[in-house]
Design a protein around this nucleic acid. Structure first.
Length: 109
DNA sequence: TCAATGACCTGCC
DNA sequence: GGGCAGGCCATTG
């Protein structure tokens, strides 16, 4: 219950924490940045434990810009509220102008 | 201990 | 061009 080892899990948290405000990224983007393009699934699962940490999981969405993990949050539209509060337009669990607010770690970092 | 699942994405038919 | 299946790592039963 204490992954002190530098595993894929930990790396995901580090990248997620580095996500600039008002920007969103996708699981595949982080996975690809880490070198595991096919481990996008893992990234999403990592967010499971991120809920409650300093990791802005609400800034991480799927490739389509859908707030797939919103159901895992406390309330129902809590995730959407957070994004809108940062300046990200969200409509019905879907990020508007996803290409504009999209933050690619492999390109930015 | 073994097996199955999970906030997904890419590649092949 | 569209649909299907595989794969990754970790956690839970």
């Amino acid at each position: 219950m204490k992954p002190e080892t530098l595993s894929f899990f930990e790396k995901v948290y580090e990248v997620a924490k580095q996500i600039p405000m008002g920007r969103v990224t996708s699981y595949g983007a982080i996975a690809k940045y880490l070198g595991a393009t096919k481990s996008a699934r893992m990234v999403g699962y990592a967010m499971n434990g991120s809920t409650g940490k300093e990791v802005p999981a609400h800034r991480v969405v799927n490739r389509l810009g859908l707030l797939t993990g919103k159901f895992h949050f406390e309330g129902s539209n809590h995730m959407q509220q957070l994004l809108e509060s940062e300046g990200v337009s969200v409509k019905d669990n879907q990020v508007q102008d996803f290409e504009t607010v999209f933050w690619d770690p492999s390109a930015e970092l």
